[in-house]
Design a binder for these strands. Structure first.
Lengths: 166, 166
DNA sequence: CACATATTTGTTATATTATAACACTGTTGA
DNA sequence: TCAACAGTGTTATAATATAACAAATATGTG
Protein backbone atom coordinates (compact mmCIF):
# COMPACT_ATOMS: atom_id res chain seq x y z
CA UNK A 1 0.00 0.00 0.00
CA UNK A 2 1.40 3.36 -1.07
CA UNK A 3 2.09 5.84 1.68
CA UNK A 4 -0.06 8.92 1.30
CA UNK A 5 1.68 12.21 1.87
CA UNK A 6 -0.20 14.79 3.86
CA UNK A 7 -1.99 16.95 1.33
CA UNK A 8 -1.66 20.70 1.41
CA UNK A 9 -5.15 21.96 2.15
CA UNK A 10 -6.56 24.17 -0.64
CA UNK A 11 -7.68 26.82 1.79
CA UNK A 12 -4.08 27.22 2.85
CA UNK A 13 -2.84 27.33 -0.71
CA UNK A 14 -2.67 31.02 -1.44
CA UNK A 15 -3.40 32.31 -4.87
CA UNK A 16 -4.88 29.17 -6.32
CA UNK A 17 -7.26 29.45 -9.26
CA UNK A 18 -10.52 29.09 -7.49
CA UNK A 19 -12.65 29.01 -10.60
CA UNK A 20 -10.55 26.18 -11.98
CA UNK A 21 -10.66 24.42 -8.64
CA UNK A 22 -14.47 24.44 -8.53
CA UNK A 23 -14.57 23.25 -12.13
CA UNK A 24 -12.21 20.38 -11.40
CA UNK A 25 -14.32 19.31 -8.45
CA UNK A 26 -17.44 19.21 -10.62
CA UNK A 27 -15.72 17.26 -13.37
CA UNK A 28 -14.43 14.74 -10.84
CA UNK A 29 -17.91 14.46 -9.32
CA UNK A 30 -19.41 13.76 -12.75
CA UNK A 31 -16.82 11.08 -13.34
CA UNK A 32 -17.37 9.39 -10.00
CA UNK A 33 -21.15 9.43 -10.28
CA UNK A 34 -21.03 8.01 -13.78
CA UNK A 35 -18.77 5.23 -12.55
CA UNK A 36 -21.09 4.49 -9.65
CA UNK A 37 -24.17 4.62 -11.84
CA UNK A 38 -25.88 7.30 -9.78
CA UNK A 39 -27.35 10.52 -11.12
CA UNK A 40 -25.69 13.85 -10.47
CA UNK A 41 -28.78 15.83 -11.44
CA UNK A 42 -28.80 19.56 -12.18
CA UNK A 43 -29.96 20.34 -8.66
CA UNK A 44 -27.36 18.15 -6.99
CA UNK A 45 -24.65 19.51 -9.22
CA UNK A 46 -25.69 23.08 -8.52
CA UNK A 47 -25.66 22.48 -4.76
CA UNK A 48 -22.22 20.92 -5.02
CA UNK A 49 -21.03 23.90 -7.05
CA UNK A 50 -22.41 26.38 -4.52
CA UNK A 51 -20.63 24.54 -1.73
CA UNK A 52 -17.35 24.49 -3.61
CA UNK A 53 -17.70 28.10 -4.67
CA UNK A 54 -17.45 29.27 -1.09
CA UNK A 55 -14.41 27.20 -0.13
CA UNK A 56 -15.62 27.59 3.41
CA UNK A 57 -18.29 25.52 5.08
CA UNK A 58 -21.83 26.49 4.09
CA UNK A 59 -25.01 25.91 6.04
CA UNK A 60 -28.04 24.22 4.53
CA UNK A 61 -30.15 27.35 4.83
CA UNK A 62 -27.45 29.46 3.20
CA UNK A 63 -27.53 27.08 0.26
CA UNK A 64 -31.31 27.40 0.20
CA UNK A 65 -31.03 31.19 0.02
CA UNK A 66 -28.51 30.97 -2.81
CA UNK A 67 -30.82 28.69 -4.78
CA UNK A 68 -33.69 31.07 -4.20
CA UNK A 69 -31.51 33.93 -5.36
CA UNK A 70 -31.37 32.25 -8.73
CA UNK A 71 -35.11 31.90 -9.01
CA UNK A 72 -35.49 28.35 -7.75
CA UNK A 73 -38.19 27.96 -5.12
CA UNK A 74 -36.09 25.82 -2.80
CA UNK A 75 -37.54 24.49 0.42
CA UNK A 76 -35.53 22.72 3.15
CA UNK A 77 -36.20 19.15 2.00
CA UNK A 78 -34.95 20.00 -1.47
CA UNK A 79 -31.64 21.14 -0.06
CA UNK A 80 -31.29 18.39 2.50
CA UNK A 81 -32.00 15.69 -0.05
CA UNK A 82 -29.32 17.05 -2.32
CA UNK A 83 -26.94 17.23 0.64
CA UNK A 84 -27.78 13.66 1.63
CA UNK A 85 -26.96 12.46 -1.85
CA UNK A 86 -23.67 14.33 -1.92
CA UNK A 87 -22.77 13.04 1.55
CA UNK A 88 -23.58 9.46 0.56
CA UNK A 89 -21.39 9.77 -2.50
CA UNK A 90 -18.73 11.36 -0.28
CA UNK A 91 -18.52 14.40 -2.56
CA UNK A 92 -19.03 16.63 0.48
CA UNK A 93 -18.59 16.27 4.23
CA UNK A 94 -20.61 17.58 7.11
CA UNK A 95 -18.73 19.48 9.79
CA UNK A 96 -20.74 18.62 12.86
CA UNK A 97 -19.34 21.33 15.10
CA UNK A 98 -20.47 23.97 12.58
CA UNK A 99 -23.64 22.37 11.22
CA UNK A 100 -22.16 23.10 7.82
CA UNK A 101 -21.05 21.36 4.67
CA UNK A 102 -17.86 21.51 2.65
CA UNK A 103 -16.56 19.97 -0.55
CA UNK A 104 -14.36 16.92 -0.20
CA UNK A 105 -10.90 17.49 -1.62
CA UNK A 106 -10.26 13.85 -2.55
CA UNK A 107 -13.63 12.20 -3.05
CA UNK A 108 -12.28 9.21 -4.92
CA UNK A 109 -10.88 7.35 -1.96
CA UNK A 110 -12.79 6.55 1.18
CA UNK A 111 -11.08 8.35 4.02
CA UNK A 112 -11.53 9.74 7.50
CA UNK A 113 -12.56 13.33 7.99
CA UNK A 114 -9.84 15.54 9.40
CA UNK A 115 -10.42 19.28 9.49
CA UNK A 116 -8.64 22.37 10.70
CA UNK A 117 -11.15 25.16 11.33
CA UNK A 118 -9.93 28.73 11.66
CA UNK A 119 -12.02 30.63 14.19
CA UNK A 120 -10.93 33.96 12.78
CA UNK A 121 -11.45 33.72 9.04
CA UNK A 122 -13.78 30.74 8.98
CA UNK A 123 -11.83 28.78 6.42
CA UNK A 124 -11.58 25.06 6.84
CA UNK A 125 -8.70 22.92 5.66
CA UNK A 126 -9.15 19.23 5.05
CA UNK A 127 -6.02 17.40 6.06
CA UNK A 128 -5.04 13.82 5.45
CA UNK A 129 -2.50 12.52 7.89
CA UNK A 130 -2.23 8.72 7.93
CA UNK A 131 -0.42 8.87 11.27
CA UNK A 132 -3.60 10.16 12.90
CA UNK A 133 -5.61 7.29 11.45
CA UNK A 134 -3.01 4.82 12.64
CA UNK A 135 -3.01 6.20 16.16
CA UNK A 136 -6.79 5.93 16.23
CA UNK A 137 -6.66 2.40 14.84
CA UNK A 138 -4.31 1.32 17.63
CA UNK A 139 -6.73 2.50 20.29
CA UNK A 140 -9.90 1.17 18.69
CA UNK A 141 -8.25 -2.14 17.92
CA UNK A 142 -7.06 -2.52 21.50
CA UNK A 143 -10.59 -1.96 22.76
CA UNK A 144 -12.27 -4.21 20.21
CA UNK A 145 -14.13 -1.24 18.77
CA UNK A 146 -14.94 -1.48 15.07
CA UNK A 147 -14.99 2.04 13.61
CA UNK A 148 -16.90 2.84 10.47
CA UNK A 149 -16.76 6.61 10.30
CA UNK A 150 -15.13 9.41 12.15
CA UNK A 151 -14.68 13.13 12.28
CA UNK A 152 -11.78 15.10 13.65
CA UNK A 153 -12.46 18.80 13.96
CA UNK A 154 -9.64 20.98 15.22
CA UNK A 155 -10.58 24.57 15.97
CA UNK A 156 -7.90 27.24 16.14
CA UNK A 157 -6.19 30.00 14.21
CA UNK A 158 -4.60 29.50 10.81
CA UNK A 159 -1.19 30.78 9.81
CA UNK A 160 -2.54 33.63 7.70
CA UNK A 161 -4.66 34.98 10.52
CA UNK A 162 -1.83 34.69 13.01
CA UNK A 163 0.49 36.55 10.64
CA UNK A 164 -2.15 39.20 10.05
CA UNK A 165 -2.59 39.68 13.80
CA UNK A 166 1.07 40.67 14.15
CA UNK B 1 6.42 14.96 31.66
CA UNK B 2 4.79 11.72 32.70
CA UNK B 3 3.48 9.55 29.93
CA UNK B 4 -0.27 9.09 30.21
CA UNK B 5 -1.51 5.59 29.66
CA UNK B 6 -4.65 5.20 27.60
CA UNK B 7 -7.48 5.09 30.08
CA UNK B 8 -9.98 2.29 29.99
CA UNK B 9 -13.27 3.99 29.19
CA UNK B 10 -15.87 3.56 31.96
CA UNK B 11 -18.56 2.59 29.48
CA UNK B 12 -16.41 -0.35 28.47
CA UNK B 13 -15.69 -1.34 32.05
CA UNK B 14 -18.31 -3.92 32.78
CA UNK B 15 -19.82 -4.21 36.19
CA UNK B 16 -18.51 -0.98 37.61
CA UNK B 17 -20.35 0.61 40.50
CA UNK B 18 -22.28 3.25 38.66
CA UNK B 19 -23.72 4.91 41.72
CA UNK B 20 -20.24 5.30 43.15
CA UNK B 21 -18.97 6.53 39.82
CA UNK B 22 -21.57 9.30 39.64
CA UNK B 23 -20.83 10.24 43.23
CA UNK B 24 -17.10 10.45 42.56
CA UNK B 25 -17.70 12.69 39.58
CA UNK B 26 -19.77 15.05 41.68
CA UNK B 27 -17.21 15.16 44.47
CA UNK B 28 -14.46 15.90 41.99
CA UNK B 29 -16.59 18.61 40.38
CA UNK B 30 -17.15 20.24 43.80
CA UNK B 31 -13.44 20.16 44.45
CA UNK B 32 -12.51 21.68 41.09
CA UNK B 33 -15.12 24.43 41.31
CA UNK B 34 -14.03 25.33 44.82
CA UNK B 35 -10.43 25.56 43.64
CA UNK B 36 -11.44 27.73 40.70
CA UNK B 37 -13.66 29.92 42.82
CA UNK B 38 -16.76 29.32 40.72
CA UNK B 39 -20.12 28.24 42.00
CA UNK B 40 -21.43 24.75 41.39
CA UNK B 41 -25.00 25.68 42.28
CA UNK B 42 -27.75 23.17 43.01
CA UNK B 43 -29.07 23.46 39.48
CA UNK B 44 -25.67 23.01 37.86
CA UNK B 45 -24.86 20.12 40.14
CA UNK B 46 -28.18 18.46 39.41
CA UNK B 47 -27.67 18.80 35.66
CA UNK B 48 -24.19 17.34 35.99
CA UNK B 49 -25.60 14.48 38.03
CA UNK B 50 -28.32 13.77 35.46
CA UNK B 51 -25.72 13.68 32.71
CA UNK B 52 -23.48 11.33 34.67
CA UNK B 53 -26.38 9.14 35.71
CA UNK B 54 -27.03 8.12 32.12
CA UNK B 55 -23.43 7.29 31.23
CA UNK B 56 -24.46 7.86 27.66
CA UNK B 57 -24.74 11.21 25.96
CA UNK B 58 -27.88 13.16 26.87
CA UNK B 59 -29.57 15.86 24.85
CA UNK B 60 -30.42 19.25 26.30
CA UNK B 61 -34.14 18.66 25.95
CA UNK B 62 -33.89 15.27 27.64
CA UNK B 63 -32.24 16.99 30.59
CA UNK B 64 -35.04 19.54 30.56
CA UNK B 65 -37.63 16.77 30.73
CA UNK B 66 -35.81 15.11 33.61
CA UNK B 67 -35.72 18.37 35.55
CA UNK B 68 -39.41 18.85 34.90
CA UNK B 69 -40.05 15.34 36.11
CA UNK B 70 -38.77 16.40 39.49
CA UNK B 71 -41.04 19.41 39.69
CA UNK B 72 -38.67 22.07 38.44
CA UNK B 73 -40.17 24.29 35.76
CA UNK B 74 -37.15 24.17 33.48
CA UNK B 75 -37.12 26.09 30.22
CA UNK B 76 -34.43 25.78 27.53
CA UNK B 77 -32.27 28.71 28.69
CA UNK B 78 -32.11 27.25 32.18
CA UNK B 79 -30.67 24.03 30.83
CA UNK B 80 -28.37 25.62 28.27
CA UNK B 81 -26.91 27.98 30.82
CA UNK B 82 -26.12 25.13 33.15
CA UNK B 83 -24.60 23.23 30.23
CA UNK B 84 -22.54 26.27 29.24
CA UNK B 85 -21.15 26.54 32.75
CA UNK B 86 -20.28 22.84 32.88
CA UNK B 87 -18.68 23.02 29.44
CA UNK B 88 -16.63 26.06 30.43
CA UNK B 89 -15.40 24.27 33.52
CA UNK B 90 -14.74 21.22 31.34
CA UNK B 91 -16.85 19.03 33.61
CA UNK B 92 -18.78 17.85 30.57
CA UNK B 93 -18.17 17.73 26.84
CA UNK B 94 -20.47 18.29 23.91
CA UNK B 95 -20.53 15.60 21.25
CA UNK B 96 -21.23 17.62 18.16
CA UNK B 97 -22.23 14.72 15.94
CA UNK B 98 -24.97 13.77 18.41
CA UNK B 99 -25.97 17.19 19.72
CA UNK B 100 -25.55 15.66 23.13
CA UNK B 101 -23.57 16.07 26.32
CA UNK B 102 -21.54 13.65 28.41
CA UNK B 103 -19.58 13.80 31.64
CA UNK B 104 -15.84 14.24 31.34
CA UNK B 105 -13.94 11.33 32.83
CA UNK B 106 -10.87 13.34 33.78
CA UNK B 107 -11.93 16.94 34.21
CA UNK B 108 -8.86 18.02 36.12
CA UNK B 109 -6.49 18.22 33.21
CA UNK B 110 -7.14 20.13 30.05
CA UNK B 111 -7.26 17.62 27.23
CA UNK B 112 -8.53 16.97 23.75
CA UNK B 113 -11.86 15.28 23.23
CA UNK B 114 -11.61 11.76 21.86
CA UNK B 115 -14.73 9.65 21.73
CA UNK B 116 -15.77 6.23 20.54
CA UNK B 117 -19.50 6.17 19.86
CA UNK B 118 -21.29 2.84 19.53
CA UNK B 119 -24.07 3.05 16.95
CA UNK B 120 -25.79 0.00 18.38
CA UNK B 121 -26.02 0.58 22.12
CA UNK B 122 -25.42 4.32 22.13
CA UNK B 123 -22.70 4.25 24.73
CA UNK B 124 -19.80 6.60 24.34
CA UNK B 125 -16.29 5.94 25.58
CA UNK B 126 -13.91 8.80 26.20
CA UNK B 127 -10.43 7.74 25.25
CA UNK B 128 -7.15 9.46 25.90
CA UNK B 129 -4.43 8.46 23.53
CA UNK B 130 -1.47 10.85 23.52
CA UNK B 131 -0.29 9.38 20.21
CA UNK B 132 -3.38 10.83 18.52
CA UNK B 133 -2.65 14.26 19.96
CA UNK B 134 0.94 14.03 18.84
CA UNK B 135 0.00 13.06 15.30
CA UNK B 136 -2.37 16.01 15.16
CA UNK B 137 0.27 18.33 16.58
CA UNK B 138 2.71 17.32 13.85
CA UNK B 139 0.25 18.28 11.14
CA UNK B 140 -0.97 21.51 12.69
CA UNK B 141 2.57 22.55 13.53
CA UNK B 142 3.72 21.94 9.96
CA UNK B 143 0.92 24.14 8.65
CA UNK B 144 1.38 26.90 11.20
CA UNK B 145 -2.07 26.26 12.58
CA UNK B 146 -2.52 27.03 16.28
CA UNK B 147 -5.16 24.69 17.69
CA UNK B 148 -7.12 25.57 20.78
CA UNK B 149 -9.77 22.90 20.92
CA UNK B 150 -10.67 19.79 19.07
CA UNK B 151 -13.09 16.93 18.91
CA UNK B 152 -12.54 13.45 17.57
CA UNK B 153 -15.70 11.43 17.22
CA UNK B 154 -15.37 7.87 16.01
CA UNK B 155 -18.61 6.11 15.23
CA UNK B 156 -18.74 2.31 15.11
CA UNK B 157 -19.65 -0.79 17.04
CA UNK B 158 -18.25 -1.57 20.48
CA UNK B 159 -16.88 -4.94 21.53
CA UNK B 160 -19.91 -5.87 23.61
CA UNK B 161 -22.31 -5.25 20.74
CA UNK B 162 -20.13 -7.17 18.31
CA UNK B 163 -19.95 -10.09 20.71
CA UNK B 164 -23.69 -9.96 21.24
CA UNK B 165 -24.30 -10.00 17.49
CA UNK B 166 -22.53 -13.38 17.21
C1' DC C 1 -26.85 44.28 59.75
C1' DA C 2 -28.17 46.99 55.56
C1' DC C 3 -27.28 47.91 51.37
C1' DA C 4 -25.20 48.03 46.68
C1' DT C 5 -23.50 45.00 43.37
C1' DA C 6 -22.97 41.09 40.77
C1' DT C 7 -24.37 36.51 39.73
C1' DT C 8 -27.79 33.22 38.90
C1' DT C 9 -32.26 31.79 37.54
C1' DG C 10 -37.00 32.57 35.51
C1' DT C 11 -39.79 33.79 31.57
C1' DT C 12 -41.30 34.89 26.97
C1' DA C 13 -40.32 34.84 22.47
C1' DT C 14 -37.86 33.46 18.52
C1' DA C 15 -33.91 31.73 15.66
C1' DT C 16 -31.63 27.86 13.49
C1' DT C 17 -31.21 23.26 11.80
C1' DA C 18 -33.49 19.16 10.20
C1' DT C 19 -37.18 15.72 9.04
C1' DA C 20 -41.95 13.54 8.09
C1' DA C 21 -45.51 12.75 4.94
C1' DC C 22 -47.55 12.93 0.77
C1' DA C 23 -48.21 14.79 -4.05
C1' DC C 24 -46.34 15.55 -8.43
C1' DT C 25 -42.96 15.06 -12.26
C1' DG C 26 -39.70 13.09 -15.05
C1' DT C 27 -36.78 9.06 -16.45
C1' DT C 28 -36.07 4.30 -17.61
C1' DG C 29 -36.86 0.07 -19.44
C1' DA C 30 -40.18 -3.75 -20.72
C1' DT D 1 -47.45 2.95 -23.91
C1' DC D 2 -47.19 2.40 -19.67
C1' DA D 3 -45.55 0.52 -15.27
C1' DA D 4 -42.12 1.26 -11.94
C1' DC D 5 -39.00 3.99 -9.82
C1' DA D 6 -36.20 7.96 -8.79
C1' DG D 7 -36.25 12.67 -8.07
C1' DT D 8 -38.38 16.99 -6.78
C1' DG D 9 -42.13 20.03 -4.86
C1' DT D 10 -45.00 21.32 -0.98
C1' DT D 11 -46.87 21.70 3.61
C1' DA D 12 -46.24 21.05 8.11
C1' DT D 13 -43.63 20.21 12.12
C1' DA D 14 -39.76 18.42 15.05
C1' DA D 15 -35.40 19.17 17.41
C1' DT D 16 -31.81 22.12 18.93
C1' DA D 17 -30.33 26.62 20.52
C1' DT D 18 -30.27 31.69 21.66
C1' DA D 19 -31.87 36.72 22.59
C1' DA D 20 -33.68 39.89 25.72
C1' DC D 21 -35.29 41.29 29.85
C1' DA D 22 -37.29 40.48 34.63
C1' DA D 23 -36.95 38.46 39.17
C1' DA D 24 -34.51 36.25 42.77
C1' DT D 25 -30.45 35.05 45.24
C1' DA D 26 -25.73 35.41 46.79
C1' DT D 27 -21.56 38.28 47.97
C1' DG D 28 -18.80 41.80 49.62
C1' DT D 29 -18.46 46.32 52.12
C1' DG D 30 -19.37 49.96 55.25
Amino acid sequence: MAQRRPTLPPALTRGHDHHQCVHDALVEAERLCAGRDVRLTELRKRVLELIWASHAPVGAYAIMDLLRGEGRNAMPPTVYRALDFLLEQRLIHRIASLNAYIGCTHPGDRHAMQYLICKTCGTVAEIDNPAIDEAIAVTTGGLGFAPDSQTLEVSGICRDCRDAAR
